[in-house]
Amino acid sequence: MLHSGAGPNTTAGSEPAGSARLEQPSAPENRRASAGWALFGSELSVLFRRLRTWAMLLALAAVPVLIAVVVRLAADEGGPGGGPPFLNQITQNGLFVALTGLVVSIPLFLPLTISVVAGDTIAGEAGHGTLRYLLTAPAGRLRLLAVKYGAAVVFCIAAALTIVVTGALIGTILFGTGPVTLLSGDTIGVGDSLVRLLLVAVYVALSLAGLAAIGLFISTLTEVPVGAMATTAVLAVVTQIVGALPQLDWLHPWLFTYHWLDFADLLRQPISWDAFGANALLQGGYIAVFCALAYSRFSTKDVLS
């Protein structure tokens, strides 16, 4: 199953480049760009045709479903303050299932799935012996890296949206919706709250994009995909542990997990964009550094398989 994915990828990657060369010999830039988009499209279709991708998204979707069903079945409404944030609000408004699902998934489930996708990017191709074929096109390495990272980011968005959409749906079915109470105590309508939920999904996807860049770099270091996946996942967990140690608090603002749970700032009235901006800056830094490292490593690497 894993091998079947790499097959169409190689042909799709080299074919458009070949045909474009015949049509527009005078415009190499154009050719490269269109070949890049074609490669991106085929990479996405490979990613989302994999059973593994759907299994991971299904597992993520199961988190809010499980929360909603358990809360529905339990007669006892835990008092305020207990359990994960927003849990006690679910019975009043189903949309909070999506938020509880995110809070529960952010520390482990989401980083785990991202690690699998990002760790597989280069190392997976190398492990299957298909990397060589992907690099036959000119200027191949940078483009391949960009396409691989782009696909990983698309998966980040898909993963965050899966939890939010499933959570909102199951919550609406089991508990119904209504005006949403924000953290500030103000109440907003269902339409506004859906916009805020989408913003939260964007925030979470952005948070994960930094981890995906780290995974991409680790993936260029090895030819064993499982090693890259495990390293990325372990790194995400270790970083969160370091982030919980008060003795290292000078280091905390520099950790990529520092703003992961700060999406609650989007649930204040008016929205506080401070955390969003700080998170974008932090993740942007990680993306820049680790994509640069990945490029340097990958472009100087001897590809033997």
Binding site: G285, A288, V289, A292, L293, Y295, S296, R297, S299, T300
Partner: peptide, 12 residues
């Protein structure tokens, strides 16, 4: 090719 890996962190 190792230049970006050095330059980007330095710029940041």
């Amino acid at each position: 090719r190792w230049l970006p890996a050095a330059v980007v962190p330095a710029v940041i």
